[in-house]
């Protein structure tokens, strides 16, 4: 085995597959939003998902997380097939953020993250009313873990602020903290730096690297090419619902079909 071989194939083969989407297709009536897309994500890997507007990136995310039921294809997490129900997907260990921030605006930052702990805690009605030692222990643990996660994403001081009063960049971090609270094995981020200034973008990159260090796999949708190519181990480019190119950032970056898809509308017409 040569050195170059280990760099390309060994990278893939030596690691455990966390998420595998095989031939996922999503049709809305006559429109095929996602067409036969397959993706494999390994442990500790950061995968980027790019493509022009309307390419089906977010729809693909929704298929992965069970918010849409794919017309065809399956999604497996660590070998087990995921039922297309958001609740079960989260419990199985996949968490996400949203393109247009969907925090619980009238809750504090801490409460938002505590909601994320919901699926990993179990106090029900009677326990909550009786307030036994189990309830108190679990409540304290939830609070402690939530505070820990806020510290982790750099919002340790904003604990008691209402989410709707927080600056835009902080809201994006809070969404990540909330997703992390569900103890995921893989994190899906939908445009985590949209609307951020360069400084905040850089901090977000640091945060995502830190999350990867913790052993999580990360899939990122982003329009900011520099961000994607600096961040990701592997990049997938979707165009009009189908997978156009998959490869390392360098490969994708230099692929003329990707450049065409983004800026070369005229070229396409000529070639047809």
């Amino acid at each position: 085995m040569t050195v170059t071989d280990t760099a390309t194939t060994g990278h893939e083969a030596g690691r455990v597959t966390v998420l595998e989407a095989s031939s996922v297709t999503m049709r809305f009536g006559g429109l095929t939003a996602v067409d036969d897309v397959s993706m494999r994500v390994h442990e500790g890997e950061i995968v980027g998902l790019i493509g022009p507007n309307g390419a089906g990136k977010t729809t693909f995310f929704n298929c992965l997380t069970g918010m849409y039921v794919p017309t065809e294809g399956t999604v497996t997490l660590k070998g087990a097939i995921l039922p297309p129900k958001p609740l079960k997907v989260v419990r199985a260990g996949m968490a996400r953020t949203f393109q247009n921030i969907r925090l619980f605006g009238n809750m504090t930052a801490l409460e938002n993250v505590m909601v994320g702990r919901y699926c990993r805690t179990s106090s029900m009605a009677l326990t909550s009313i009786l307030r036994g030692p189990k309830f108190k222990r679990e409540e304290a643990a939830t609070r402690e873990r939530a505070q820990e996660l806020l510290d982790y994403v750099g919002l340790g001081r904003s604990t008691e602020l209402l989410a709707r009063n927080m600056p835009y960049g902080d809201q994006r971090r809070l969404e990540i903290a909330r997703a992390l609270a569900t103890d995921p094995q893989i994190l899906l981020l939908d445009e985590p730096t949209a609307g951020m200034n360069p400084r905040e973008t850089e901090e977000t990159m640091g945060l995502i690297f830190k999350i990867r260090e913790g052993g999580l796999a990360v899939v990122v949708i982003e329009h900011d090419m520099r961000f994607i190519f600096n961040l990701c181990d592997r990049v997938l480019c979707l165009v009009r619902g189908s997978l156009l190119v998959e490869g390392t950032p360098d490969q994708v970056q230099s692929d003329h079909r990707v450049i065409e898809a983004y800026i070369g509308g005229d070229d396409e017409e000529e070639s047809v």
């Binding site: 997380t65 968490a95 809750m107």
Partner: peptide, 12 residues
């Protein structure tokens, strides 16, 4: 606040 988001965060 947001039923879809709550479900996506694992709230039953």
């Amino acid at each position: 606040e947001d039923e879809r988001a709550a479900e996506a965060m694992g709230v039953n």
